[in-house]
C-alpha cells in the first residue's frame, strides 16, 4: 500500500513542495538559525565552558533523567490505556478517549499549578504521602509527574492506531499454535507495537526535556538538584546573557533534532521492512 513508484501523473508537487519549504524556512529554520548565529558571538572555549559548567551539567542530568523516567512510565501506562481503549468496551469510553488529549490543550502553567496544589505536602494527595516521608512536589518525582502529564498523549496516540490495525489473524494463528495469551502478547503483539512504542516514548522524552511552564511550579528549582535546563536558559536571559542562553539552547536543539531524526529513520526502515514482507 505504501508502494513507491515514480508518481509523475499527479500535479502540484512544485507548488506544495515549494510552499512547504518556504513556510518551514520562515517559521522554523530562519528563527532557529538565529540561535546558532547568536552563539557564534562566543569563542569556542567560552562556549564549551558555558555548556559544561557544573550547574548546567547537573541541569542536563535532571532534565534527561526525569524525562526518561516519565517516558518509561508513559510507555507502560500509555500502552495499557491504548490497549483498553482499542480492545475493550466499557461505559464512558468516548469521554475517556477525549480526556487523553487534554494535556495537549491545557496551558502548561495551569497544569503545573494544579499538579503542585495536589502533590504539595498540604495537597489532596501530598498530605497522604507526606507522613510516609514521600516528597513529591519540589523533588525530582514532582518533575517526573509533570512530564508524565505532558507526555501521555504522545504514547497513547501513537500506539492506538497500530493496535487497531493489528491483524486478528496473526493473533489467532498464535492461539491455534497453542500459545498462551501472555505469550502471544510478548511474542506476537509487542514486536508489532515496538516501532510505535519507540516513537511515542521518544516524542514524550523529547517534549519532556524542553518542558518549562509546568515544571517550574512543581520542581522547587534547587540548583544541582531540581533545576531543569530550560530554567537555566531563562535565568541566563534574565541576567542579560543572551549568548550564554543560546549556547545551552543550541545543545538542546541539536539533541532534539538528532533524536527525532533517528526516530524517523527507524520508522522509515521498519516501514520498508513491512513492505518487503
Amino acid at each position: 500500500m505504501k508502494g513507491s513508484k515514480p508518481r509523475n501523473v499527479l500535479p502540484g508537487f512544485g507548488l506544495s513542495m515549494g510552499f512547504t519549504i518556504f513556510y518551514l524556512s520562515v517559521i522554523v529554520l530562519i528563527p532557529l538559525s538565529a540561535v546558532l548565529f547568536k552563539t557564534f558571538e562566543l569563542s569556542w572555549p567560552e562556549f564549551w565552558k558555558t555548556v559544561t559548567s557544573a550547574r548546567v551539567l547537573a541541569a542536563y542530568r535532571v532534565s534527561f533523567l526525569t524525562a526518561f523516567f516519565a517516558g518509561l512510565v508513559n510507555l507502560v501506562f500509555g500502552m495499557l490505556i491504548a490497549w483498553v481503549l482499542v480492545r475493550y468496551r466499557f461505559p464512558g469510553k468516548k469521554l475517556i478517549d477525549s480526556l487523553v488529549d487534554l494535556p495537549f490543550a491545557l496551558p502548561t502553567a495551569v497544569a503545573g499549578i494544579a499538579l503542585t496544589a495536589i502533590y504539595a505536602p498540604n495537597g489532596w494527595i501530598g498530605s497522604y504521602l507526606a507522613p510516609l516521608g514521600i516528597k513529591v512536589a519540589y523533588s525530582p518525582i514532582g518533575i517526573t509527574i509533570a512530564l508524565i502529564f505532558i507526555g501521555l498523549p504522545f504514547v497513547v496516540r501513537t500506539v492506538q492506531p497500530v493496535l487497531q490495525d493489528l491483524e486478528k489473524e496473526t493473533e489467532e494463528a498464535a492461539v491455534m499454535l497453542g500459545a498462551y495469551r501472555l505469550r502471544t502478547f510478548w511474542k506476537v503483539i509487542l514486536p508489532e507495537l515496538m516501532p510505535a512504542l519507540v516513537t511515542g516514548f521518544a516524542m514524550a522524552f523529547a517534549r519532556g526535556i524542553g518542558e518549562y511552564g509546568s515544571v517550574v511550579f512543581i520542581s522547587g528549582n534547587m540548583p544541582l538538584k531540581t533545576e531543569i535546563t530550560p530554567l537555566l536558559i531563562m535565568t541566563k536571559l534574565e541576567q542579560y546573557d543572551y549568548a550564554g542562553a543560546t549556547a545551552i539552547a543550541l545543545v538542546m536543539l541539536i539533541v532534539s533534532f538528532l533524536m527525532l531524526l533517528v526516530i524517523n529513520l527507524l520508522q522509515w526502515q521498519m516501514n520498508r521492512r513491512t513492505i518487503a514482507r
Binding site: 532557529l32 540561535v35 523529547a206 517534549r207 524542553g210 542562553a245 543560546t246 539552547a249 527525532l260
Partner: peptide, 16 residues
C-alpha cells in the same frame, strides 16, 4: 522539530 523544541527557545528565537 517544534514538538521537541523547548517553549522557552521557541519564544527566544523571535526575540533574537
Amino acid at each position: 522539530l517544534p514538538f521537541a523544541v523547548s517553549p522557552v527557545i521557541s519564544g527566544m528565537v523571535y526575540v533574537l
